Simulated scan of single mutants.
Amino acid sequence: MTSDDVRHRREAGHFVRWALAQKIARDLSFPAVRWNGPSQAMDDEARWATARRLLHDDTLKSEDR
């Protein structure tokens, strides 16, 4: 699960954490994935600015928009 070509690493991590929380598994560890998202909630103006950018910025990939 640590090689670069493995698939579904993220989903496996979620499953392992769920199994531990449900006490189905013991002594399992899984490398954490660092999330680089916002560290705090966005205010209304920032949320609207992001929405406008996603709607109108043609430099963004369509999958991200």
Rank of each mutant, 00 (worst) to 15 (best):
A25E: 10
R53D: 03
A49Y: 04
M42K: 08
P38M: 02
Q22R: 10
T50N: 09
W18Y: 15
R9V: 03
R34Q: 06
S39C: 06
R52P: 01
A32G: 13
A19W: 05
S29L: 07
A41H: 03
A25P: 06
F30R: 00
R10G: 10
A49P: 00
S62F: 06
W18G: 05
I24F: 05
R47D: 09
A46T: 08
A41P: 00
R53M: 03
R9P: 07
V16P: 00
A51E: 04
W18D: 15
R26M: 02
R47G: 02
F15G: 00
A21N: 14
R9A: 08
D58P: 01
Q40E: 12
E45L: 03
Q40F: 08
A12Q: 09
L55E: 15
R34T: 12
W48I: 10
K23R: 15
W48V: 08
R17G: 00
T59R: 10
R52D: 14
R34Y: 03
M42Q: 13
A25L: 14
T50R: 09
A21R: 12
S62Y: 04
R17D: 06
S62T: 06
T50V: 09
H8R: 11
R47T: 06
D43Q: 03
R53K: 06
D57Y: 01
T59M: 07
P31Y: 06
A32Y: 07
K61V: 10
K61R: 07
F15E: 12
L55V: 03
W18N: 15
R52H: 12
F15K: 11
D27N: 13
K61Y: 07
T50W: 10
A12K: 13
A49I: 04
D57F: 00
E45N: 13
A49W: 08
F30T: 05
R65C: 07
V33I: 12
D44I: 03
R9E: 02
E45H: 01
E11C: 02
A25F: 06
D43F: 13
R34S: 10
S62V: 01
A12T: 04
D44H: 07
W35Y: 11
D64R: 11
D64M: 11
D58M: 00
N36S: 10
K23W: 05
D43N: 12
A32T: 03
S62N: 06
R9L: 05
T50M: 14
M42E: 13
A32F: 04
W35S: 14
D58C: 02
I24A: 13
D64Q: 11
A41E: 09
G37D: 10
L28K: 08
S29M: 04
K61P: 10
